[in-house]
Write a protein that binds this DNA or RNA. Structure first.
Length: 548
RNA sequence: GCGCCCGUAGCUCAGGUGGAUAGAGCAGCAGCCUUCUAAGCUGUUGGUCGGAGGUUCGAAUCCUCCCGGGCGCACCA
């Protein structure tokens, strides 16, 4: 147990004694060293609950605080009611033993208790290549899934394919038109169809493999074949892009499966049985307004076909049937208006209120050479995810997508992502890892051969070394918080900070060639720093190279 | 018109369940290479936290209104 954990736990017990059980205790590292090694604002947050002045609450907290002996050399109350802790000499270095003992697992926790969570992301229509927006969703969804795994949840990464809707018909008609054009006939890609060159190429491939007679098929048969071929081909390309981007899905779920299983009808029946549907103007409606939506929504149109809402409801209901406790969907900002109606429908079905959660990913603007790279799916002129990561590398692309909160718009600077200097954040972090590795390479020994046992870690007393140990100690808490908030950018932020201190330390001090006790101590520190950098990068799906 | 997200240093962004003098990187300025990677490090300039009210002992953070940007408001997906 590190000092952080011990103090946090003791504060939790103290809060309980004051009559505030379950209080969320946050320990932070004060910017100003005069404020101690660790500090908490617990008294300030409890002041309201306990109806007392913050300083008074702090006094009472400190009075009942039962810290493990020898951990803290001084506890003080400061400012409006902060409690500052000054750790005992050498106490901080205990984190090094913890990091080395846990290794790749340092930062993981069991708090999720194997709760089953479904994380659905990307879920692009199988009608064309993935673009940069999908890439951001892929990086974010994958990282959120990893964060949940790191905190002990049983996670399923899922991709949903709309293979039964109107978009596929458009794909088929667009492709068929390209086939006709290719054999010299007059044909036009339909209004709102897919204009991209990729269908021109696909049409050519079809004519090569199937022969020119393919173009002479009846319209019905041609469309049917185009539908199947087009979807299979686009799905395959998306899968290949995602694989190359380092994202692996556990489940790819097809909308057509819902029809095959009869879940569409069943869902409709359940909604009707619960009395949440009604007929009007020849259509069947969901009474969404009874569940927080601002309009009622059509489920079955006047022409007898279903709106796309119904399959989506059935799909999420099915997730619940599949025994997931939570379903987290990562959606593009252009779908945010759709959230209330799905939520309303799931409430109408009686699912738990917290079952369905949506993380919105805002749009990505790509800058190159100081200019915005315009893209438009409609005209077929857009930046594909593959174009992007082939240019910048997968590591840089993933890191850049994860650097910012999902709900703020992202400016992706391609030139920066490609640059091999300290200005490039991903490069900077990886470089810190490589430098730590380099020490062991030069020493001619494996990092794993260094043990914290029998080493007098009190030799690690430089300010930079103290800082590093505090950073390392903070990592598990950062992971927990990032998982709770579904905010992977907290990890990139942490890594950047750790790398900064690591570079400063590396630059100022030497490890190899120091007197043996000091060399030993610094090797332990270098191994721990390397481990935590690697853990953070790995969590985000980014490589941790031993040399650059 | 209504709804959601955003507006913090020249630029890109943290901080946002109210708390200690508002932070980082880049750019700018001034320095640092007998080094385990200078592919790096140090110092420094720079802010009416979009604006105006309000709640509070205390507001970048919460509430109201306004301004600006983005995205939605289908019996399309």
């Amino acid at each position: 147990m590190t000092a952080n954990d011990a103090i946090r736990a003791a504060l939790g017990r103290a809060a309980e004694r004051l009559g505030a059980p379950g209080a969320e205790v946050t320990l932070e590292r004060p910017r100003d060293p005069a404020h101690g090694d660790l500090a908490t604002n617990l008294a300030l947050t409890l002041a309201k609950v306990l109806n007392a002045k913050p300083r008074e609450v702090a006094d009472r907290l400190v009075a009942v605080l039962d810290l493990p002996p020898g951990l803290v050399r001084k506890t003080e109350i400061a400012g409006p009611g902060f409690i500052n802790f000054f750790l005992s000499e050498g106490e901080l270095s205990a984190v090094l033993g913890a990091v080395l003992a846990a290794g790749p697992r340092y930062g993981r926790s069991e708090s999720g208790q194997e709760t089953a969570i479904n994380v659905e992301f990307v879920s692009a229509n199988p009608t064309g290549p993935l673009h940069v927006g999908h890439g951001r969703g892929a990086a974010l969804g994958d990282a959120i899934a990893s964060l949940l795994e790191w905190t002990g949840h049983a996670v399923t990464r899922e991709f949903y394919v709309n293979d039964a809707g109107a978009q596929i018909d458009k794909l088929a008609r667009s492709l068929w038109a390209r086939v006709q054009q290719r054999v010299g006939r007059t044909a036009e890609v339909p209004e709102g169809g897919y204009q991209g060159d990729y269908l021109v190429e696909l049409a050519e491939e079809i004519l090569t493999s199937e022969g020119r007679a393919f173009a002479d098929l009846s319209q019905d048969e041609g469309l049917r074949r185009c539908r199947a071929i087009g979807m299979r081909s686009q799905r395959a390309e998306q899968d290949e892009d995602l694989r190359a981007f380092g994202v692996k899905f556990d489940v790819v779920f097809f909308e057509s499966e819902l029809y095959r299983l009869g879940l569409i009808e069943q869902t409709l029946r359940h909604l009707a049985e619960r009395g949440h549907t009604f007929e009007q103007d020849g259509a069947l409606w969901l009474r969404a307004t009874a569940f927080g939506d601002d309009k009622d929504r059509v489920l079955r149109k006047r022409d007898g076909t279903y709106t796309y809402l119904l399959p989506d409801i059935a799909y999420h209901r099915h997730k619940h049937e599949r025994a997931f406790r939570y379903a987290i969907d990562v959606w593009g900002a252009d779908h945010h208006g759709y959230v209330p109606r799905v939520r309303a429908a799931l409430l109408a079905l009686g699912l738990p209120e917290d079952f369905f959660e949506v993380e919105i990913v805002q749009l990505v603007r790509v800058m190159r050479g100081g200019e915005e790279v315009r893209f438009s799916k409609r005209t077929g002129d857009f930046v594909t995810l593959r174009d992007l990561f082939e240019e910048t590398g997968v590591d840089a692309a993933r890191y850049f997508f994860l650097m910012r909160r999902g709900d703020s718009q992202l400016v992706f600077d391609v030139d920066l992502a490609k640059s091999q200097t300290d200005e490039n954040p991903v490069f900077y972090v990886q470089m810190a890892h490589a430098r730590m590795s380099g020490i062991f390479r030069v020493a001619g020994r494996a990092p794993e051969s260094v043990s914290a046992d029998d080493v007098a870690l009190a030799v690690l007393d430089a300010p930079e070394e103290i800082d590093l140990m505090k950073e390392l100690a903070a990592f598990p808490g950062v992971v927990t918080r990032a998982a709770q908030e579904r905010e992977p950018h907290r990890i990139t932020g942490f890594l950047d900070g750790l790398a900064r201190v690591a570079h400063a330390w590396y630059h100022k001090y030497r490890v190899l060639g120091e007197p043996p006790p000091r060399e030993q101590g610094r090797l332990v520190l270098a191994r721990a720093v390397r481990q935590v950098l690697a853990n953070g990068l790995t969590l985000l799906g980014i490589s941790a190279p031993d040399r650059m």
